[in-house]
Amino acid sequence: MTLILASSSPRRRQLLHSIGLEFDVVPADADETELAGESPVDYVGRIAALKARLVAERLDAPQSVAVLAADTTVDVDGSVQAKPVDDADARRMLRRLSGRTHQVHTAVFGWTSGGEHSVTVTTDVTFARLSDDGIGWYLSIGEHRDKAGAYGMQGAGAALVRRIEGSPSNVIGLPLVETIGVLRACGVAVAGG
């Protein structure tokens, strides 16, 4: 079974390589606009499914192919905190996260010609109280760009996080235990877990 990752995320590639998987990367060009009234959990589920199906359709994927897609968002009080549009937007997001607990949701979606399998994982993340200087320091590093909620826990952003409850790899963008389950359901041979 050939595995296709429908994502250009270097973090997802790194996580999949860390569990010994070989795969091709075919990024999905999906419209990720949030729908009116859509919950963060419904949002990530819809986007992950859309990405996998778009790539499968583009490749006219045969039976020997499995397409894996994922989408992650930060949820503050039921509101999607997507990737910041600029530094001012990132500063606003980090102020909103400061000293609070929020949720990180990742939907993992596997497509094969024989069926679709999905799971959504939620992790609670509690931020330390951030000063304006601390936020400025983090923004100066540039790590906030292209990350939901304007932070990355796998790098310097870990200094912003006081506690997590749930999957650490989920916060990075791919909950590995659950991803292994989705891949096995799709017929992909995965060691471990």
Results as ranks from 00 to 15, higher is better:
70 A>M: 12
51 K>I: 15
79 S>R: 03
68 L>S: 04
64 S>H: 13
37 G>R: 07
61 A>E: 03
73 T>Q: 08
32 E>M: 12
59 L>G: 14
35 L>R: 12
82 A>I: 08
18 S>M: 08
44 V>L: 03
20 G>R: 07
30 A>Y: 09
29 D>E: 15
38 E>H: 09
51 K>E: 15
39 S>G: 01
64 S>G: 12
39 S>Y: 04
37 G>H: 06
14 Q>E: 15
49 A>L: 09
72 T>L: 01
79 S>P: 00
62 P>H: 11
72 T>A: 06
29 D>M: 13
45 G>T: 15
17 H>G: 10
35 L>E: 08
60 D>N: 15
66 A>I: 08
57 E>I: 02
51 K>M: 10
80 V>A: 04
85 V>D: 13
33 T>F: 04
68 L>A: 08
65 V>M: 14
87 D>C: 06
59 L>P: 06
79 S>H: 08
29 D>S: 13
25 V>T: 03
54 L>Y: 00
70 A>W: 10
21 L>W: 02
33 T>P: 00
49 A>E: 11
77 D>T: 00
61 A>I: 13
16 L>T: 02
26 V>F: 12
40 P>F: 04
63 Q>M: 02
82 A>N: 13
39 S>R: 03
40 P>D: 09
28 A>H: 02
27 P>G: 07
54 L>C: 00
73 T>R: 04
65 V>S: 02
36 A>W: 03
15 L>E: 07
74 V>L: 14
46 R>S: 02
36 A>Y: 08
66 A>S: 10
56 A>P: 02
42 D>R: 04
63 Q>Y: 09
46 R>W: 06
22 E>V: 11
62 P>N: 15
48 A>R: 05
76 V>Q: 00
75 D>T: 01
83 K>Q: 04
26 V>C: 04
57 E>T: 12
57 E>N: 01
86 D>L: 05
67 V>C: 09
85 V>H: 08
68 L>F: 12
73 T>P: 03
58 R>Y: 12
66 A>T: 11
27 P>N: 04
66 A>C: 15
82 A>F: 04
62 P>S: 15
42 D>S: 12
71 D>A: 05
38 E>W: 13
49 A>V: 09
